[in-house]
Write a protein that binds this DNA or RNA. Structure first.
Lengths: 321, 321
DNA sequence: CTCCGACAATTAGAAAGACTAATGAAAGTC
DNA sequence: GACTTTCATTAGTCTTTCTAATTGTCGGAG
């Protein structure tokens, strides 16, 4: 067989990897260094690719290398192709060892950082599972992930979905608090009076907590002036830090956002009983005792963090048996 | 450079083409005929692919060849990959001011917390815009949000999408660093030696940074042992804090994750030039000078944070004019 | 059960590809 | 216009991938 068909005579994947490195850095030499190969090899790969595609990819006449139109197109497509390949590799890594050598846990964004070191220690130490995959995310995503079997356990909040086939272990219940700048010296027992002086930083309605808060305020017929909305706790708290805003948050949202020495005051809400629960969910009957251990360890880690960082608020959190 | 590159060097695309032919006909010989090559070559490609993926693809014990579980998975993914490549070929063939009531800004998750107070101050003070909507999120979501006009400006990273109709202002360029526990006393200039002592905490491939890192390691033919993956920086860093892991992160990812006094060491990567850029994107011609001001303020805020929290690493960040 | 035919795995050697090192030719800098 | 930086080119080495020929194995017919 002669095999004159020169087009396929190029390792396209390798060529695309090299091309992307060059497109990223806009320098052949820099790309070569990043790839751990010589400038010559990169140059040759580029040339071969251009020849195979029959189109120039860079404008060599300018020194910070410039992508041509064809180059731009290739860049977008190459990214997708390499992503697909990456997905393939990752899926096969997880499949090829299908006997739970990896435990996949989705965490409510607000507790993710707090729980990570403890869970990693537990999984590698006590449970002897070699690999752990943690993902943060909104509570709404957790349902889909559980259904798609792309996670094994979800530590999440107020599941609004069908729990048939799933087991739900309570972790804790926490009330919402008023979060104020320390230098605020007005009333804290009347939210309207408070609103005269500060404006509310809200969670946007994309996040389930934001939605819950909005609905609660609505139920209470509170139409508060708004100045800013954000979709993560640290941003909401950052708004309060400016001194001109206040927020409504729970302890777990707070510990995700605050650092030692932040100028914050935490007060009870003027309206009582507004709280949320955190639970651990897993497919019933799978994984043996692991989910319960994870839930219990999560509870312990959170309780510990609350007492250290939020001594006042910690008392109001409820831990089920 | 010694480069033990014999390991993962398979022409994956070719291997997938061959694999698909065999999967279609369920016969090695028939596939070979269809591909215009010898049965031997096909057989060798298959063997190599199975070895590279570390999973059997066919059940050889039955004569009309039968796909294994891994084989079924590969078949689906391979189809998508080859389709993407086909699309690439086909496409390339054809080649030869302040009167806004609310400003909506999407921020790369890693810089969201850092930028929030400064942007809020700027918008309410200097620009006189009454309301600000901030959202964090993955870089991939920003494109959709811009297209859907649900945000006005995106502070994001390495946009892989079509920038026609959009203006892209560079904010900064930051290299990736090695992040280690302080008590690690082994070598930091050889990633393989390092991998003997610590295991890599990765960003999962859901996050664009994770994808970028994975692809870079792949490009360099580095197949590092993995112990944990997570999808936000604070969780990755929390893994390093346990003392048994290391990570590969940029300054902006770090400042999102670290707190004062964390036991971390930050060292340059053994391979040079792996970095990412942060840019501000907005629809061309809209919003007047606001996007540039936002970009500039973002650059200033980030630079300030880097110098305060990461004095070592800060020098390596590049701020375009 | 055994033998046979069809098919797949192996081996060795040739052709092609991918890399390094060294050199030559531009572009950008002063 | 000389100097520096950066990319292209060339030659040579090593690796990969192919063909050709051979050996090994599955599965059905007698």
């Amino acid at each position: 067989m002669k095999k004159t068909q020169a087009e396929s005579d190029v390792n396209l994947l390798r060529a695309l990897e090299v091309f992307m490195a060059v497109a990223d850095s806009r320098h052949v030499t820099a790309a070569a260094a990043a790839l751990g190969m010589t400038q010559s090899a990169v140059s040759q790969q580029l040339k071969k690719l251009e020849w195979a595609l029959d189109a120039p990819l860079f404008n060599r006449a300018r020194r910070p290398l410039e992508l041509t139109h064809a180059g731009e197109i290739l860049r977008r497509r190459a990214f997708r192709i390499l992503s697909e390949v990456e997905d393939l590799r990752s899926e096969l890594r997880h499949v090829q060892s299908s006997s739970i050598p990896i435990l996949r846990v989705a965490l409510l964004a607000s507790v993710a950082t707090t729980l990570t070191p403890g869970l990693l220690d537990m999984v590698r130490g006590g449970l002897g599972i070699p690999e752990l995959s943690l993902s943060a995310g909104l509570a709404t995503d957790h349902q889909a992930a559980l259904n798609a079997r792309s996670i094994d356990i979800a530590i999440t909040s107020d599941p609004q979905f069908d729990l048939t086939d799933y087991t739900c272990t309570p972790v804790l219940e926490e009330p919402f608090f008023l979060v104020l700048p320390t230098d605020y010296d007005g009333p804290t027992d009347d939210i309207h009076a408070l609103s005269e002086r500060l404006s509310l930083v809200r969670f946007s309605a994309d996040a389930p907590v934001g939605r819950r808060t909005d609905q609660h305020l609505q139920r209470c017929r509170l139409d508060l002036p708004r100045s800013m909305e954000a979709d993560r706790a640290s941003m909401v708290v950052a708004g309060v830090i400016t001194g001109k805003c206040y927020a409504i948050l729970t302890p777990s949202l707070l510990i995700d956002a605050i650092a030692e020495g932040m100028a914050l005051r935490i007060e009870p809400l003027p309206f009582a009983g507004f709280k949320r629960s955190i639970v651990a969910i897993h497919r019933t009957g799978e994984l043996g005792g692991i989910p319960d251990q994870v839930a219990e360890e999560s509870r312990r880690l959170l309780q510990q963090s609350f007492e250290r960082l939020l001594p006042h608020a910690a008392d109001h959190v409820i831990y089920p048996a």
